[in-house]
Design a protein around this nucleic acid. Sequence first.
DNA 1: GATGAATGAGTTTTCATTCAT
DNA 2: TATGAATGAAAACTCATTCAT
Lengths: 207, 207, 207, 207
Amino acid sequence: MKNEETGRKKQKGEKTKRKLFNTAVRLFNQYDFGEVTVDRIVEAAGVAKGTFYIYFESKDALIAAFLLDYVNRVDTDYRATLDSFPPDTNASQILLSLISKIADTLTGTIGCQSMRTVYKLQLADTMDMSAVKGYDRELYGMFADLLERGIERGEFSPILPLNELTRHFVVAIRGLSYEWCIRYPDFDLKAQALSHFQILLDGIKSN
Amino acid sequence: MKNEETGRKKQKGEKTKRKLFNTAVRLFNQYDFGEVTVDRIVEAAGVAKGTFYIYFESKDALIAAFLLDYVNRVDTDYRATLDSFPPDTNASQILLSLISKIADTLTGTIGCQSMRTVYKLQLADTMDMSAVKGYDRELYGMFADLLERGIERGEFSPILPLNELTRHFVVAIRGLSYEWCIRYPDFDLKAQALSHFQILLDGIKSN
Amino acid sequence: MKNEETGRKKQKGEKTKRKLFNTAVRLFNQYDFGEVTVDRIVEAAGVAKGTFYIYFESKDALIAAFLLDYVNRVDTDYRATLDSFPPDTNASQILLSLISKIADTLTGTIGCQSMRTVYKLQLADTMDMSAVKGYDRELYGMFADLLERGIERGEFSPILPLNELTRHFVVAIRGLSYEWCIRYPDFDLKAQALSHFQILLDGIKSN
Amino acid sequence: MKNEETGRKKQKGEKTKRKLFNTAVRLFNQYDFGEVTVDRIVEAAGVAKGTFYIYFESKDALIAAFLLDYVNRVDTDYRATLDSFPPDTNASQILLSLISKIADTLTGTIGCQSMRTVYKLQLADTMDMSAVKGYDRELYGMFADLLERGIERGEFSPILPLNELTRHFVVAIRGLSYEWCIRYPDFDLKAQALSHFQILLDGIKSN
DNA sequence: GATGAATGAGTTTTCATTCAT
DNA sequence: TATGAATGAAAACTCATTCAT
């Protein structure tokens, strides 16, 4: 009896927390962090202000949770894309597909405002960015795998060490995303990214 | 006598304004814009709050002045570098020199924190960024000139239209600068930039 | 249980709002609008500054509420007076009764300081005076009705058009109220008003 | 030598004071008292801020001086009007002429904004209004003289004591002026005043 | 007599957080 | 678990006044 009761309460609590969280995400994707006040969140979620502090230690804690979630969603997507290729596919081709997938995800799923938020946070470093840092590691890992495969297959010239090469690719994707953010909506991320990476691939291919 | 007096007062005023400005710059390079309050600035500068508003119409006006100053310092530097080359120098070579110069300026003159500030502002776009926009145009112009020259001289393959090519280069330098900001001090901007642009140049050179 | 709780909270909130409002009214009746700061209000009411902004959007909103309240109190009173007369009563008589009622209300219910406030606001016209404007319209309407009736009944000479006549009466009541405000407490509003309107009525009566 | 020098300095000082004063008057006629800051005055007058405090003890002192000046200018005007009539002229006629003159002065010389200022000040009574009070006494005196003459000549019925009658006339002129202020520019002061006083005169004339 | 740089108390408003119920 | 009233520190900005030169 007690347990059942407790269980039901927990469930209800979870639901409230999720409602709060989803509302916050929606607002974060529309407005600046500073603009999204706790007041606005609770009002939009239809709960009392005090309730917010039952589920989140602070506004900052909510933001951290938001970032973690965002990273998780993205990561899975990319991995799936990679896994869908036969093991012997041309590395350049896979890489361009991955770029294409990333562009789609940023444009479609994540949205420009969320990216702005992430970038700003990264620059502010007033907060625990471990989630995003972890995501960077993942992205780095994927690029590294692909480039390594390309070198092994003789597609790419081995002039630069793998880790340096990888870093250049990461820099490029970040530069493109940033540009997209600040030029939005006058910057076609996918087209630009594909063209950009084509140049990079041409620059490292074995002649 | 009168004029002397007036002159001395003006000088004193200028000094106070400069003190305020420099203090603000120092703080902007250390903290987030939102964190740098007028109160903190005046306290650090050792003047009264009212004094701030004699010299700056608002906090935003101060930030605008800060940006303008930053842009001015940079621009002159770059142009000088370009002008120092004989007219028939190899375009790739000039471009790499320019990149080198930019890296030096960012690293030495501007500093990582100022760049962070600029990037954050650009992402926030809650403010008049015309100064920085103007700077972007300048940078774009310089890259475009160099690439055009390279195409004319037959160094670069004319596959992509000039403006697209230029955009890729701007994206790249911005990506590198951004990476430098968030990885600081673990990212050697100059070395990475030269290596990165070497790849890009390889990617567009006429075979 | 839940509802009870909510109700009790709402009640408490209402009480605080009323406390704030009444305190403000008291201060408005003692000091100039500019002199009554939010700080003074909350201090006198014994609540925190933030609390003020829970119940009033701004200082201006509070003032608007204050005016609306004042107007509402008055209007009802006058209409009731008018309705209490049999339809065929002498217009002069009703008019003098209305004047008498107005004097009583101003003297007893509203108070001299509130009127000062209203007049000052009207002169400043830096604010939305629609509430008071509406009240003026009402007063004008009542006078117009009475005068029209008087003309129809042959009590008043029809030399002047109705709307002009009405305007003169409104001017008179306002002049009297104003005088009362600035001469307070050395001006017997009721006696003066009755005497004044007697002259006006004598001035327009059919010989 | 010394005296000459001193004299010249004094003259220059007077000139500066007058410049300051006239500038202030111009601003007071255009803007609210609160809106006219010392800064604006000295800027418009083209003198330094400190200079203001050489000639006026405070902003309030300046306002007091402004009022005194205003009253003086007006008073002389009215007296002249009165004196221009032959001693045996009809009292009603003189009174209407005086009203007409007052309307002209308010409309032409004083201006609506100045009157607003005076009325607001009168309501605020946060300041020394002795100047204006004195003016009221003058106006009262003039009305009293005229009404007394009218009663003596048998023009007006002696039902009311002289001082009460006078008060009614003062109230009326003030009510009209106030109305003009708040209805400006939709209120023809002169026409309305003449019509209004005609009614009053009709109301008190011996049948 | 004139200057104008400097002052600082005071104003309105915001918002993350607490806590009694 | 949920509420929402209450808090108060902090923000940007204003302006009458002072004083050294």
